[in-house]
Design a protein around this nucleic acid. Sequence first.
RNA 1: GCUCGGUUGGUGUAGCCCGGCCAAUCAUGCGGGCCUUUCGAGCCUGCGACGUGGGUUCGAAUCCCACACCGAGCACCA
Length: 508
Amino acid sequence: MSPAERRERLAELDPDRLTELTAETETDEDHDPLGELPNADAYDEIRMRLAPNPNGPWHLGNARMPAVIGTYKDRYDGWMLCRFDDTDPETKRPDLDAYGDILDAIEYLGFEPDAVIRASDRLETYYEYARELIELGGAYTCTCSAETFSELKNAGEPCPHRAKDIETVMEEFEAMIAGEYDPGDIVLRVRTDIEHKNPALRDWAAFRMIDTPHPREEAAGYRCWPILDFQSGIDDQLMEISHIIRGIDLQDSARRQRFLYEYFDWEYPEVVHWGHVQIDAYDVKMSTSTIKGLIAEGELDGWDDPRAPTLASLRKRGIQGEAIVSALVELGTSTSDVDLALSAVYAANRELIDDDTDRAFFVRDGVEKPVVNGPDAGTPPVHPDYDERGDRTIPVDGAVVVEPADVPPNGERVWLKGYGCVRHTRDAFEFTGDGIDAVREEDVPVVHWVPADENVPLTLRTMDGPVTGHAEPGLREYAPDDIVQFERVGFARIDAMNDDAVAYFAHP
RNA sequence: GCUCGGUUGGUGUAGCCCGGCCAAUCAUGCGGGCCUUUCGAGCCUGCGACGUGGGUUCGAAUCCCACACCGAGCACCA
């Protein structure tokens, strides 16, 4: 039935309802991919946290956390904590540089945490709450091997240690803190429901022994470390977090932590889970450990290699943090997995920088052609949309370099942008003196060029590897970090301006 | 195996809770046109989607059931 038919039918059956529908006004809300936070009205202040694991510099996927949480912070005038969840000195060993790198990355994205803490500074606090939990009968020390416990748990059967009295548990837990056990010998478990239908929630481990000292000197003396679910559960309460936003891999985490909150009679924060992000356009898998490995093997030049899907790499290419945030926010917070199109980041970035970016010529792998009978210089505009910024002056000392694909067949003309029309005769470009109508009416192509002598040899580093070529002499006026648009090539960030000039390609 | 999520154009997203101006929004992408001394910007325009099958209903993207497919958890990782 077509909509028109449906309306007709409705008019027969229930004319009042039809009138109501017609009266309902369409609210044209602003485009808002994020939507409102759940139950936001119930809180005086929206308090959120970023909870990075400082095991390496950030890739593009990691940026989603500050992008979304930071955007909500701005929207609700909320509060944002950066808490380093660095409670595994062994298998997810923190990288001491990463703490600072991550804070830099957050700043690059345009946000500032209201507070920064490290879980590894807070072991005594976690111990205190663990003791309290034991007093409440909510935890027990367990000396089952991981395998044994796993089998019992999967069968829904308690292990013998579950029945221990509180005093014994407390003694053994104090001994754990004192470092009197070896790794693997004992854990502290939260007593949940051993017959819970979801096996992932049954009596989960809260503390375990780790011999490897924490890389941070302040925390190197501890041997008894909390598991994320315990540490983060306690901290979220202590920091009065109102909204937790994190990945679907932590969905069961929330369910586990609710048992903790019930023992302490706390109220669990609102929680939003999102799916995984993949990025098109990169050959390198977006994973901290993979990138770390490729750098170690020399496959990548470093964290800022343009081929690496890292924030450092995008930053090096001159892409604004704001563009990354805007593309990531656009993904919303759905629980299904999403692909981020890098072109969305480019589109956002182009929008941000196009107006302010000066134009310049860069000829890739050029061929030299003598120019005869023409003027001494070309004067293309600094920015085609803003006459007031003036023209560049590019000298022509008898010859220019153009890209091979731009050389017209013999006898044909080409317009050297900002200079004039030339005809390819034998092996030279002969100035023709044609007016711009040649371009407008006669389809003469417009190309970029640089002088053969006075130019700037430059390497443009791209995602597909380096490209060598020559830029116009005026490029020397630019300094590292400046962004230019190489006409007909794309935007680029100047990285070094000396004998070996280097720029990083951003996008078309 | 047990448990928990998800599935709207090439990509992302809105709509789903509370069925009806939804032959489905917006963005990006791609194509065409205009403009332009850039393959950029701008303007105009086009392309393109409700996983499958049943059910409920006057009416289903929306509610119910089944199936398919994708993902996550069941770590002494985060």
